[in-house]
């Protein structure tokens, strides 16, 4: 969007710039502070820090509970991401290729677990697991965590894949069929390479979402401890504070990195950001289509 002249008066432009800088500081200063705290040599949380040290990183690595929680979080994240990748991309193909009754409702139903308050989703799943326990012996476990996470991760993959499909020319698929490839070959050699980075981005975002989720997880995990749950249970214990600080910083970085990579992956192909937990890119694609239509 290049513009010959700005209609905004100079004063407004400067004011907006200052406000933007302040808001950015508001967003990022707390993150830097918590990372600094991971290097706090003292047990006390008082500011300013007496110095910097990596001693608590070693202590954290040797903490058996933290390791178990990390492993649980990784398993839950991988499980939920796998399910979300399969269900989300299938749904994206269906909505992209077919016109059917209730087509518009699909994305609404998929976004619902993220749009409804977390406590409602958590409580609903909790009631189901409880009743399932009575009826078929279902119990709170890693699997119930995975099922809960997958439910709200599907929309992330769905949005990324459908945005990519909308950009992919259908002539490519037709050409593949014309040249004699069957459906599986077309998928393997034409569609998959086209959506690979979108799948990757969706998967990374789904993983990041699952990896630090706590609101719903508290209702679906029973006695299983994930990393965020471990922080939540331990942050009030003065003795554990240094370890909590380290775990918090690691959790922050581990979830920032996949998001950053996902961002790069979707940007290269010209699409904006997987914003709004995935709700917005599809909307932007829609807007693009409407604008392009005569």
């Amino acid at each position: 969007m290049s513009r010959e002249r700005a209609i905004e008066p100079q004063s407004i432009q400067i004011g907006l710039r200052v406000l933007t800088a302040l808001v950015l500081a508001f967003l990022y200063v707390p993150l830097f502070i918590i990372i600094l705290y991971a290097f706090n040599p003292a047990r006390s949380q008082s500011w300013p820090l007496p110095g910097l040290s990596t001693r608590w990183f070693v202590a954290t690595w040797n903490n058996a509970d933290v390791r178990t929680a990390l492993l649980t979080s990784l398993k839950a994240g991988l499980g939920a991401t796998t399910i979300a990748l399969i269900l989300g991309s299938l749904a994206a193909f269906a909505v992209h290729r077919f016109r059917f009754f209730g087509r518009e409702a699909v994305s609404f139903v998929l976004i619902l677990p993220l749009a409804l308050p977390g406590i409602v989703t958590g409580m609903a799943l909790n009631s189901t697991i409880n009743l399932g326990g009575e009826l078929i012996g279902l119990s709170f476990s890693l699997w119930t965590i995975i099922i809960g996470h997958a439910t709200f991760c599907v929309v992330v993959v769905y949005n990324n894949v459908i945005a990519r499909l909308r950009r992919t020319a259908t002539s490519l698929v037709e050409a593949s069929y014309d040249l004699g490839a069957d459906g599986l070959q077309t998928f393997r050699y034409v569609i998959l390479p086209n959506i690979a980075t979108a799948l990757m981005a969706g998967g990374l975002l789904a993983f990041a979402l699952s990896f630090d989720e706590i609101i719903v997880t508290n209702f679906t995990s029973g006695s299983e401890i994930t990393l965020p749950k471990w922080i939540f249970n331990n942050l009030r214990l003065p003795n554990q504070r240094p370890v909590v600080n380290v775990v918090a910083s690691v959790l922050l970085l581990v979830s920032l990195i996949p998001v950053y990579i996902a961002q790069r992956l979707t940007q290269e192909s010209g699409g904006l950001v997987s914003a709004g937990r995935g709700a917005i890119p599809a909307a932007i694609e829609d807007a693009g289509e409407q604008a392009a239509a005569p």
Partner: peptide, 30 residues
């Protein structure tokens, strides 16, 4: 850059961000 800096916190570490504020706001905090 601005969009990236909006997207990063959106996806990451809800609990850590609350915890960061708990640290900042506490009596002897930043």
């Amino acid at each position: 850059l601005l969009l990236l800096s909006m997207v990063l916190p959106l996806w990451s570490s809800y609990l850590v961000r609350v915890y960061a504020w708990r640290t900042i706001l506490s009596g002897d905090g930043v």
